[in-house]
């Protein structure tokens, strides 16, 4: 029973850590499926984390904060779109620029607004996403096995966690069961064919980049208003790149994105519980190895040693209409 509770706790923190990765990973999925590489997930998350926390702190409403975070992320998406779709610039370089822009601007504005060394004030009450207790959670708490599972693991997360998990089947449905999804995937594989069919390549790609912005916005808002209570400098801490790694690991598929981010979330959760690892596999594992594991695994997957990851064919290539 004690082991069971430890497991539930571990999975609970896995869910918390996997949520921002999942949202960012799905964000990247839309963008890359439409043929726009996005290594600026990190920057968009960071900008959204700051603006949601800042606006939530000022207005006292986390929902207005969330909207502000999404708006900030969308502005960066728009820059990425203009640079890589309209002006057919290098998508990778644009992503790098966006990451730096967010890293610098968040601290600059945080300092100008709050003068607390690049952080926002701590969020309290309505300025944070509080955990939700699902129906009957209290009543079922004492039921053996299933009670703790429902009360500790499934219930008691913030609304954004449930949004993230719901986004997985929704993304699958949107991409693989609707006309918009078919076109979006086609524009990442063969934009010329989409163009010939009379559908706007530019429009579709902007739509994908926009969806990516919204999801990164939610991911960022989750970081600063649900996972933690306020913004601190560089708080995205490489999560955008882990999400990118998860996207490759998932081979650009929504359900696999869920599994990949859950796995990487578990690594994160294990990093804080070295005692559990030692008890399970009987030896010590260095924390540094665990933090490097998502990247190492992604490199192995990319190398095609364990099933080859093939990105969308037109990814990274600006589309030039034939004249």
């Amino acid at each position: 029973m004690e082991h069971y509770l430890t497991l539930i706790q571990l999975l609970d923190s896995t869910v918390r850590l996997a949520t921002p990765l999942l949202l960012a990973c799905l964000a990247g999925l839309y963008s890359e499926r439409a043929g726009i590489f996005d290594i600026g997930l990190e920057g968009k998350m960071l900008a959204a984390a700051f603006f949601s926390a800042a606006v939530a702190a000022i207005t006292g409403s986390v929902w207005i904060g969330l909207l502000a975070g999404i708006a900030a992320s969308l502005v960066l998406s728009a820059i990425h779109g203009v640079a890589s779709i309209t002006f057919r610039g290098n998508q990778l370089i644009s992503g790098v620029a966006i990451n730096f822009l967010a890293a610098g601007m968040t601290v600059l504005i945080a300092q100008a607004w709050f003068k607390q060394g690049g952080r926002t004030p701590s969020l309290m009450g309505g300025a944070r996403f509080e955990p939700i207790t699902l129906p009957f959670a209290e009543a079922l708490r004492d039921v053996p096995i299933l009670g703790p599972l429902y009360y500790e693991l499934i219930s008691g997360h913030s609304i954004l966690v449930y949004v993230a998990f719901a986004a997985v089947p929704f993304t699958w449905w949107l991409l693989f069961r609707t006309r918009f999804g078919l076109r979006l995937r086609a524009v990442g594989e063969n934009p010329a064919a989409v163009d010939t069919a009379g559908v706007s390549v530019v429009g579709l790609r902007f739509a994908a980049v926009g969806i990516c912005g919204i999801l990164c916005g939610i991911a960022g808002a989750y970081l600063s208003t649900a996972l933690q209570a306020g913004f601190v400098k560089d708080m995205s801490a490489g999560r955008g790149f882990i999400a990118l790694a998860a996207l490759i690991f998932a081979k650009w598929r929504p359900w696999h994105a869920l599994y990949a981010t859950f796995l990487f979330g578990l690594f994160g959760a294990l990093e804080t519980r070295p005692d559990v690892i030692e008890a399970v596999i009987g030896m010590k594992v260095q924390g540094q190895l665990l933090s490097a594991l998502p990247y190492i695994m992604t490199v192995i997957i990319l190398a095609g040693f364990v099933g080859k990851a093939i990105p969308p064919r037109a990814g990274g290539e600006p589309y030039v209409k034939e004249r």
Binding site: S84, G89, A97, F100, L101, G104, M105, V107
Partner: peptide, 17 residues
């Protein structure tokens, strides 16, 4: 961090844009 912003703008204008 102002320098990071300037760096970002330089990359943006001389690279992506």
């Amino acid at each position: 961090e102002l320098i990071v912003v300037i760096q970002a703008l330089v990359i943006l204008f001389t690279g992506a844009l």
